Amino acid sequence: MRDDAITLETALASFAQRLNAAAPDAALRAAMIRCIESDLDRLPLPGAGRTLARWQQLAAVAGIDLALFKLFEGHTDALAILAELNAAPFAGHGIWGVWAAEPPNARVRVSQPDNGQVRLDGRKAWCSGAQQVDYALLTAWDADDRPYLVAVQLDQPGVSIDAQAWQAVGMASTASVDVHLDNAVGHCVGESGDYLARPGFWQGGAGIAAGWYGAAVALARSLHQQRRQGRPDPHADAHLGSVDAALLGAAAAMRECAAWIDAHPREDARLPVQRLRAQVEMAVEQVSRHVGRALGATPFCRDAHFARLAADLPVFIRQSHAERDLAQLGQVLAARDAEDWSL
C-alpha cells in the first residue's frame, strides 16, 4: 500500500507548485478534479482492513499542501460516509465537503420532508472549501430538534456563500466560510442520528491526525536534509533527535490505532481515536518547534513549500480543541473501571 501513497504524491506534486500562482483556488480545484478523474480519491474505507493504508495516503497529500489536504480529506470522508450509510444522493461526479460544525448562533433547519427530500433554511458556519466543492454533507435539525445529515448540491437557487469573515493567512485558500440556505433542496442521508451513531464517525476523525502527521513529516524532512548536508552543529542534531523521537512515537500510535479499528470495525472508536489525536497533536507541536529553532529563518523565507506548510499547520491543527479535547479524553478514562497502561 505504500506504493499507492507514492503514486498519489507523485500525481499531485505538479499541482503543489501551482498553489503559488495568482489563482490558488483554481489550482486547488484542478488538483481535486485530477484526483477524482484518476480515481485517486477512492481510498480504502475505514475499518475495512486497510485503515493504515488510508491514513498513509492522507498523510502523503498533507505533506504536499495542507489546503489541498483540507479538500481531499473532506471529499474522501464524505465518500466514506455515503458508503457506510448506503447512500448515493446525486448521480454526477464532483468534489464533496462535510460541514458538521454546530456553533450556537448558526443552525440549519430542515422542513417539508418528502420521500427523503427536504428544504433547508439557515446559516451553516465553518464550511471549509465551499468556494471549490460541488456537493456537501451538512448537519441540520428538524422542528423537534432531531439531527439529520443532509446532502446538498451547491449550484442551486437558495444557496449563497459569504466569505468576508475569513481573514486567515494560514489556510487562506480553503476558506471556512458561511453558507446561507434559503429554501434550498437537500436529501437526507440515513435516518435521524445515524451520522453520529455510526462507527465511522470516530474512525473518520482519525484521518485529520494523519494530515497533521503528514505535514509534520514534511517539515522534519527539511531538517533531516539540512543536517545531512550542513556543517557540524550539535544543537541542530539535538533538535533532529527530538523530532525523530516525536514522530516515531506518533507513527507507532497511528499504526496501533489503525490495527485496533480494523480488528473492531463495528465498535465505538472514540477512546483510541481521542488518544491518537492527542498524541499526534503533541508530536506535531514538538516537531514544529524543533524544526523552526534548528533551521532559523531561511526556509520560512526562501522555501515556498516549507513556508506554506509552516503557515498553514498552526491554523489547521486547531481542528483540535486543545484542552477541551484532553478534558473529554480524561472524562472517558475516569469513567472506566481500570486503566490499561501496562506494558
Rank of each mutant, 00 (worst) to 15 (best):
residue 36 I to S: 09
residue 142 D to H: 09
residue 284 V to A: 12
residue 247 L to M: 06
residue 290 H to M: 02
residue 225 Q to A: 14
residue 234 P to V: 03
residue 173 S to W: 11
residue 268 D to E: 05
residue 15 F to T: 04
residue 90 F to Y: 14
residue 218 A to E: 13
residue 136 A to F: 06
residue 320 S to P: 00
residue 226 Q to N: 09
residue 145 D to F: 02
residue 233 D to L: 03
residue 73 E to C: 13
residue 343 L to V: 01
residue 21 A to Q: 14
residue 277 R to I: 08
residue 143 A to H: 07
residue 152 V to N: 08
residue 155 D to F: 09
residue 62 A to V: 03
residue 335 A to S: 15
residue 286 Q to I: 01
residue 190 G to H: 06
residue 84 E to S: 05
residue 238 A to G: 08
residue 296 G to D: 10
residue 12 L to W: 06
residue 225 Q to R: 13
residue 218 A to S: 13
residue 305 H to Y: 01
residue 210 A to H: 08
residue 120 L to H: 10
residue 232 P to W: 04
residue 337 D to N: 10
residue 42 R to E: 07
residue 7 T to C: 04
residue 39 D to S: 14
residue 223 L to V: 07
residue 122 G to D: 02
residue 161 I to K: 11
residue 62 A to F: 04
residue 97 G to F: 05
residue 3 D to L: 09
residue 86 N to S: 14
residue 325 D to L: 08
residue 289 R to C: 05
residue 251 A to I: 05
residue 208 I to S: 06
residue 186 G to A: 10
residue 23 A to D: 15
residue 316 F to W: 10
residue 210 A to M: 10
residue 260 W to D: 07
residue 56 Q to G: 06
residue 28 L to Y: 06
residue 203 Q to D: 02
residue 99 W to K: 09
residue 242 S to I: 04
residue 238 A to N: 11
residue 304 A to P: 12
residue 137 L to F: 15
residue 150 V to R: 04
residue 308 R to K: 14
residue 24 P to Y: 15
residue 152 V to F: 07
residue 246 A to F: 15
residue 2 R to F: 03
residue 82 L to E: 09
residue 288 S to R: 11
residue 254 M to T: 03
residue 53 A to E: 08
residue 181 L to R: 00
residue 330 G to R: 07
residue 287 V to M: 04
residue 306 F to E: 15
residue 47 G to P: 01
residue 327 A to N: 10
residue 125 A to E: 12
residue 162 D to M: 06
residue 340 D to R: 07
residue 248 L to E: 12
residue 139 T to L: 14
residue 130 A to V: 11
residue 173 S to K: 11
residue 92 G to N: 13
residue 154 L to I: 08
residue 85 L to F: 07
residue 244 D to K: 11
residue 69 F to L: 11
residue 249 G to Y: 01
residue 106 A to S: 13
residue 255 R to D: 12
residue 273 V to W: 05
residue 177 V to K: 09
residue 110 V to I: 15
residue 166 W to R: 02
residue 93 H to W: 02
residue 280 V to Q: 12
residue 123 R to F: 09
residue 222 S to E: 09
residue 31 A to L: 07
residue 87 A to E: 15
residue 74 G to W: 02
residue 228 R to G: 03
residue 208 I to E: 08
residue 198 R to P: 00
residue 179 V to G: 00
residue 150 V to H: 06
residue 154 L to H: 10
residue 266 R to E: 03
residue 141 W to K: 08
residue 182 D to F: 07
residue 190 G to S: 06
residue 18 R to L: 14
residue 153 Q to I: 07
residue 20 N to L: 13
residue 296 G to E: 08
residue 15 F to R: 04
